[in-house]
Amino acid sequence: MLTIRNLRTGYGKVQILRGIDMSVAEGRIVALLGGNGTGKSTLLKAVSGLLPVWSGSIEFNGEEIRNRKPNVIVRRGLTQVTQGKDMYPAMTVEENLRIGAYTRSDKAGVVADMNKVFDYFPVLGERRRQLAATLSGGEVQMLVIGRGLMANPKLIMLDEPSSALAPRVLLDIFSIVNRINRNEGITILLVEQNVRMALLLAEYGYVIRDGVIHIEGDARDLINDDNVRLAYLGGTVADAGAELAH
């Protein structure tokens, strides 16, 4: 469904991604792991069109989407839920969801999908007329995932949905992500720092390091792989030493 080949990009003159190769098969949950600042969000921005790509290719459903505008890429069915929990605080919960459906003209479908979002996240239904600024951190995460669903995507890229959440809420979010994948047939690319959870949920995983895919494999194998833990730590000698001594 999504195939990335030899992708290179960065900010200004600073290169961050040095040739990423990965693919996401239809209907799956695929995890993308890596330490802080390794370029996970950068990769998502390149795929969704926010960041210009220097070279390589990004194929979505057989179509080359490299350097297409973000508003065009969303219409193809590829949605990104950003890491920053970027909701619109001065809009109501309902308006936030409606802007998620901006590309759609099927009014009935939009209403149906909004009800579906309220089924997954009942608290959003209760707060639908409230300003998004009044939501808690966990509720905001639910809102941005719900807003992503409103676009009726084929593939949704979730950037660290678990960050800064209490363990209870985190479990809720992960189980809903799983249900969305099962029930709606939406393919999910899950970027996570919570390695264990992500690998329990995903079927396949990639670990990014130094701008390339360092390790990849079936989630079950990765979960037992010491290298994953090492790579995940960010790879400084001190870190590795501490981990080995442990």
């Binding site: 969704s48 969303v74 950003t82 970027d86 001065a90 809009m91 802007i99 590309t103 807003r147």
Partner: peptide
């Protein structure tokens, strides 16, 4: 209006609005 909603969205955050499919 939907267009008005998009204008408010763009005023708040351009990147996010671009991802919503708004022609920023």
């Amino acid at each position: 209006t939907k267009l008005g909603l998009a204008v408010r969205a763009v005023a708040y955050n351009k990147d996010t609005s671009y991802l919503m499919g708004v022609n920023v």
